[in-house]
Design a protein around this nucleic acid. Structure first.
Length: 722
DNA sequence: GCGATCAGGT
DNA sequence: CACACCTGATCGC
C-alpha cells in the first residue's frame, strides 16, 4: 500500500495520488491509476469545496483512468476538472498559484506502468530537474530501456529522483513469474476444465479491483468464452475489454463477486447464482490469483498450485518483483530514490539500503569503499543525458553510461532467433553474436547491469556534474521543446543489440563481484531470454543447496509446471485481436501474439484496456497507415495531423511538438522491422523461452509439448499425477 | 448522517 | 506471503 504523502521534493506544488491534508493546496493534481489507496481524499468534502472555489485546478491522468473514475458517480464532481493526457506525449503544464499569480511551467509525460488499466508513471521535467513518479508498476526487465521518452537521444535521461513502487522490494520476492507465464498457466488450466463439458465452469476469484482485465480478455479471446463480471459499464468506451466480458451469467468463465462468494463456492455455487439451464449440477473450480514469488534461493516451480479439490491458486502480480525493481532502477540510475511503499515486515531504512546502490548519490558517497575489481571498472564515461543534441564531438569521444535499447531491437533480442533487421536468415544467430563491438561497450554494459561500481564515471561526474544537471533541467518552455526534439533521435541499431548480446556473454565471462558482498543469487540480465534460467548455474559461485532442493513451495498442493510456456511470448507490434487482424502486416500466428502484456506494446497499439487512447504514431491507426509498402510518409502525416497543439480549456496543458523528420525515421524503421519480421516469421515461434522456465529436477522428465495439456486435464479432473 | 479510522476478513 | 478491497464498530463533527 502506498504511503507516499502526495508531494515530491522537487515539485511540491503538485500532488500525486494523495488528495488530503496539505495536498488540498496543490496547484495541480495527478492520479496514476484508479486504486483506492491512491485516491485518498479524492472525493472528500474538503476536495469538493476546493474545486467549487477554483475554476482552474485540474486533475491530470490517463484517458483510461479518467473514464474509470468518472464512471463512478462519487467522482462525477471532478468531471470539469479532469484533463486526460495522452500516454507518451510530453505535455507542458503551467502551474499557477491562484492567489498570487505565481507561475511555474513543467513538462509531464505519462509512461505506461503495467499495473492496471490506465495506470501510468509520471515523468516531470522542469526547473528542479527531471523526476519520475512510478505510481504502482509492473514492468518486466528491460522495459525501461524500451521507453523512448525515458531517453534523450540514445541515452537515458538524467533523472534526479525516482519515487518508486517498492511493494516487493524485498529479496524474498526475488522473482515473480512473468505475466506471460502466469497467463499461460491460467489459460491452460481453464481450457482443460471448461472443455470437459458445458457443465464445467471456472470461477476466477479476483479481488474487487482493476488489474485483472487482461486475464479476462485473453481467456475470452483464446477460448471464445466471455467472462461474467458484476459490472461492465466502466468499460463501455473500451471495446477491447467490453467485447470479452458479459453480464450474461450463462457462460463457463466467471469473475463475478458476492459478499459471501467463498461460502457460496463451497456449496458449489457461483457468486452470481447461475445454475445450468437444464438443472444439471455444475462442476465449478475456483482459481484465485495470488502473488507467488520465488526468493533468491527458492527453486522455481509452478505458476498454478492446487489448494483443494476444486481450488487453485494462480500466480498473478500487479507489482514488479525485487529483481524487476532492481533492473528498472539500475537502468534509470537516478541521483535519489524514494520508496512509495514500505512493505510490512520491513522498514524504510531497509528498503533504502537495498535501493541505494542503484543511485548515483550513493555511488558518489561510497565509491571509495567499493573498488573491488579493477577489471570491472568502466572506462571513462559521462552520462550526457539531454546534452547530446548536436554534440557529436562528445558522442564520439565519450561512452554513454546507459544506452537505450531501441525498442524493436530489444524485442528482437528477446526473441533471440530474430536477427537484426539487416542480417540474413540462416546466419542470423551467429551474425549478431559474432559482430564485433567496442570493448568499451562491453565494459560499459557489464557495469550498467551488474555492478554499482561508478568510480570512473563518478569521477567524471564530479567534473561535469553541473553541466549535466543544467542540461537536463528544462527551465523554459522553449528549452523544453529544444530538448524534446532529441527525444526520438535514433542511432544505428546495431550497437545496442551487440551490447546486449555481448553483455549476455560477459555475464558469464567476467567475475561476479557482487557476490563478494552479498550472497545474492545473481540474475543474469538476460535470464528472460535464456533457455535455462537457474540463476546461478553459470557462475562459479557456490551453489546454495536450496537452489536444487526438491522442497515444494506448497506443502499440500499439486503442481502444474509452467514448462508449457517455454515458447516465445514475443508478439510483434501487429496484434491479432479484432482491429489488428485487419492490418495487412500480420505475420505472427495468432497463438503467439495473444499472450503479451508488455506495457510498451500496449502503448503501441496493443494498448487495449491499458491505454486505448494512444499517442499518434504509436497506435494502431498509424500502424495501419504505416504499411511496409508506404512506410514513412503516411506516418509523418499522421503525426503532424495529430500533434496539433491542443489547449485545454481553463488549463495550460500543451502537448509538446516533436520533430517530424525524426518521427518519419521512426516510421521508416518500424516498417523495415515489420518487413524483416515478415521475412522470417518462423523466428517468432522459435525456441525462445520466457523468464520463467522451470529447470527440471534430476528425477523429473520434461514433458513433450502435448503433455502439459493432458497434465492440466488430469489435474482438472482431480486425478493423481505420476 | 457522514466521514475518518481501525480491526478483521477475503 | 501480500494486495486491494469490503464490512462493521467506534468516534467526532
Amino acid at each position: 500500500m502506498s504511503s507516499f504523502g502526495g508531494r515530491m521534493r522537487e515539485y511540491p506544488s503538485v500532488s500525486i495520488d494523495r488528495f488530503d491534508r496539505d495536498n488540498l493546496r496543490a496547484r495541480a493534481y495527478f492520479l496514476s491509476h484508479c486504486h483506492k489507496d491512491h485516491m485518498k481524499g479524492l472525493r472528500a468534502p474538503a476536495m469538493k469545496r476546493r474545486l467549487a472555489c477554483s475554476l482552474k485546478v485540474c486533475l491530470y491522468c490517463s484517458p483510461v483512468t479518467r473514464e474509470l473514475l468518472l464512471t463512478n458517480p462519487k467522482y462525477k464532481f471532478w468531471e470539469n476538472h479532469i484533463v486526460s493526457l495522452e500516454v507518451e506525449t510530453p505535455t507542458q503544464i503551467s502551474l499557477v498559484e491562484e492567489a498570487s499569480g505565481e507561475k511555474e511551467d513543467i513538462v509531464v509525460t505519462l509512461l505506461p506502468a503495467g499495473h492496471c488499466p490506465g495506470s501510468v508513471m509520471f515523468l516531470f521535467q522542469g526547473g528542479n530537474g527531471t523526476v519520475l513518479y512510478t505510481g504502482d508498476f509492473r514492468l518486466a526487465k528491460g522495459e525501461a530501456a524500451r521507453m523512448e521518452l525515458l531517453h534523450s537521444g540514445n541515452r537515458v535521461k538524467d533523472i534526479q529522483s525516482v519515487y518508486l513502487d517498492t511493494t516487493f522490494c524485498d529479496p524474498k520476492f526475488y522473482q515473480i513469474p512473468s505475466r506471460e507465464e502466469c497467463m499461460k498457466g491460467i489459460l491452460e488450466l481453464v481450457r482443460s476444465w471448461i472443455t470437459l463439458s458445458l457443465y464445467h465452469v471456472v470461477w476466477l476469484n479476483c479481488k474487487a479491483a482493476y488489474g485483472y482485465e487482461y486475464l479476462f480478455t485473453n481467456l475470452s479471446e483464446e477460448l471464445g468464452v466471455r467472462v461474467h463480471v458484476n459490472r461492465l459499464d466502466m468499460f463501455k468506451n473500451m471495446p477491447e475489454i467490453i467485447s470479452h466480458v458479459t453480464s450474461d451469467r450463462h457462460t463457463q468463465i466467471h469473475a463475478c463477486r458476492h459478499p459471501r462468494d467463498d461460502e457460496l463456492f463451497r456449496g458449489n455455487r457461483l457468486p452470481c447464482g447461475m445454475i445450468s439451464r437444464d438443472g444439471r449440477r455444475l462442476h465449478i473450480i475456483s482459481i484465485k490469483p495470488s502473488t507467488m514469488w520465488f526468493g533468491e534461493r527458492t527453486r522455481k516451480t509452478n505458476v498454478i498450485a492446487r489448494t483443494g479439490e476444486s481450488s487453485y491458486r494462480a500466480c498473478f502480480s500487479f507489482h514488479s518483483s525485487y529483481s524487476e525493481i532492481q533492473d528498472f532502477l539500475n537502468y534509470i540510475r537516478p541521483v535519489n530514490v524514494y520508496p512509495n511503499v514500505i512493505p510490512v515486515g520491513t522498514t524504510e531504512d531497509k528498503v533504502i539500503e537495498i535501493l541505494k546502490p542503484s543511485c548515483r548519490s550513493y555511488s558518489k558517497n561510497h565509491e571509495l569503499s567499493y573498488k573491488p575489481l579493477g577489471a570491472l571498472k568502466r572506462s571513462k564515461a559521462v552520462d550526457l543525458a539531454d546534452m547530446d543534441g548536436g554534440d557529436e564531438l562528445f558522442d564520439t569521444e565519450l561512452i554513454p553510461i546507459r544506452h537505450k535499447i531501441p525498442k524493436l531491437e530489444l524485442e528482437t533480442m528477446q526473441n533471440r532467433q530474430l536477427p537484426p533487421e539487416n542480417s540474413q536468415g540462416d546466419t542470423k544467430e551467429t551474425s549478431y553474436k559474432a559482430t564485433s563491438m567496442p570493448t568499451s561497450f562491453q565494459v560499459d554494459f557489464v557495469e550498467c547491469e551488474e555492478s554499482n561500481g561508478e568510480e570512473e564515471e563518478e569521477d567524471e561526474d564530479e567534473e561535469t556534474g553541473e553541466e549535466r544537471t543544467q542540461a537536463d533541467v528544462l527551465p523554459h518552455p522553449v528549452d523544453c521543446i529544444a530538448a524534446l526534439k532529441d527525444l526520438e533521435r535514433l542511432r544505428p541499431l546495431e550497437p545496442a543489440c551487440e551490447q546486449r548480446g555481448a553483455q549476455q556473454q560477459s555475464n558469464k565471462e567476467l567475475p561476479k563481484w557482487d557476490a563478494f558482498f552479498k550472497r545474492i543469487v545473481e540474475e543474469p540480465e538476460a535470464s528472460e531470454h535464456e533457455d535455462c534460467c537457474l540463476p546461478t548455474t553459470d557462475s562459479g559461485e557456490p551453489q546454495s543447496p536450496y537452489l536444487f532442493s526438491d522442497e515444494e513451495e506448497f506443502s499440500d498442493s499439486t503442481h502444474i509446471s509452467s514448462q508449457t510456456s517455454s515458447q516465445s511470448t514475443h508478439i510483434s507490434e501487429q496484434g491479432s485481436q479484432g482491429w489488428d487482424s485487419q492490418v495487412d502486416t500480420v505475420f505472427i500466428p495468432s497463438q503467439e501474439q495473444k499472450l503479451d502484456f508488455s506495457p510498451l506494446k500496449r502503448a503501441e497499439g496493443r494498448a487495449m484496456f491499458y491505454t486505448p487512447h494512444l499517442p499518434p504514431g504509436e497506435n494502431r491507426t498509424d500502424k495501419q497507415s504505416c504499411k511496409p509498402s508506404e512506410h514513412g510518409t503516411s506516418c509523418t502525416k499522421n503525426f503532424n495531423a495529430e500533434y496539433k497543439t491542443r489547449a485545454h480549456e481553463g488549463t495550460a496543458a500543451v502537448p509538446i511538438l516533436r520533430d517530424s523528420v525524426q518521427l518519419q525515421s521512426i516510421c521508416e524503421r518500424r516498417s523495415l522491422q515489420e518487413k524483416s519480421a515478415a521475412l522470417s516469421p518462423e523466428a517468432h515461434t522459435g525456441s525462445q523461452t520466457s523468464g520463467f522456465e522451470i529447470p527440471s529436477s534430476p528425477d523429473t522428465k520434461v514433458p513433450k509439448p502435448d503433455k502439459p495439456c493432458s497434465l492440466y486435464t488430469a489435474l482438472a479432473r482431480g486425478e493423481a499425477l505420476h
